[in-house]
Computed example of a mutant assay.
Amino acid sequence: MLQLPQPPKPTVIYPDSDGRAMADNTKQFRWIVVIQQNLEWWFAADPNVFVAGDLLWYPVEGNNKIRMAPDVMVVLGRPKGDRGSYRQWEEDNLPPQVVFEILSPGNTRAEMNHKLLFYDRFGVEEYYLYDPDQHELSGWLRREEFLDVIDPIDNWVSPRLQIRFEMGASDLHIFRPDGQPFLTYVEIARQVEQERQRAEQERQRAEQERQRAEQAEAKAKRLADRLRQMGIDADQV
Results as ranks from 00 to 15, higher is better:
M1W: 14
M1H: 14
P5Y: 11
K9A: 15
Y14C: 01
P15Y: 04
P15W: 04
S17L: 10
G19V: 00
G19N: 02
R20E: 14
D24M: 08
D24P: 02
T26V: 14
Q28D: 03
R30W: 10
R30T: 06
W31C: 00
I32K: 13
I32P: 00
V33P: 03
V33R: 08
V34A: 04
Q37F: 08
N38W: 04
N38D: 12
L39C: 00
E40P: 00
E40R: 03
E40S: 08
F43E: 10
A44Y: 13
A44N: 12
N48S: 09
V49W: 00
F50K: 00
F50L: 06
V60H: 13
E61P: 06
G62L: 03
N63V: 08
N64A: 10
M68V: 06
L76A: 09
G77N: 09
G77W: 12
R78H: 07
R78E: 12
P79N: 11
P79V: 11
P79I: 11
K80P: 04
G81W: 06
R83K: 09
G84A: 12
Y86T: 05
R87A: 12
R87E: 14
Q88H: 05
E90R: 07
E90L: 13
D92I: 09
D92P: 11
N93P: 10
N93H: 14
P95F: 03
V98C: 02
V98R: 02
L103P: 04
S104M: 02
S104K: 02
T108D: 04
R109F: 13
R109A: 15
M112C: 10
M112W: 01
N113Q: 14
K115D: 13
K115V: 13
G123Q: 03
G123P: 04
V124M: 01
E125Y: 10
Y128S: 00
L129R: 08
Q134V: 11
Q134R: 12
H135M: 02
L137H: 06
W140K: 05
W140G: 06
R142M: 12
R143F: 06
E145V: 09
D148R: 15
V149F: 09
V149G: 14
D151F: 10
I153N: 00
D154V: 04
S158N: 06
P159I: 03
I163Y: 02
R164D: 15
D171L: 09
H173Q: 12
H173K: 09
H173W: 05
R176G: 05
Q180E: 13
P181Q: 02
F182D: 01
E187H: 05
A189T: 03
V192L: 13
Q194T: 06
Q194P: 01
E195W: 09
R198L: 10
E200L: 06
Q201Y: 07
Q201N: 09
R203S: 08
R203W: 12
Q204D: 13
E209M: 14
R210D: 00
R210M: 05
Q211F: 13
R212V: 04
A213Y: 07
Q215I: 07
Q215F: 05
Q215M: 11
A216G: 07
E217T: 11
K219G: 14
K219L: 15
L223F: 14
R226H: 10
M230N: 08
M230A: 08
G231K: 00
I232V: 11
Q236I: 15
V237D: 03
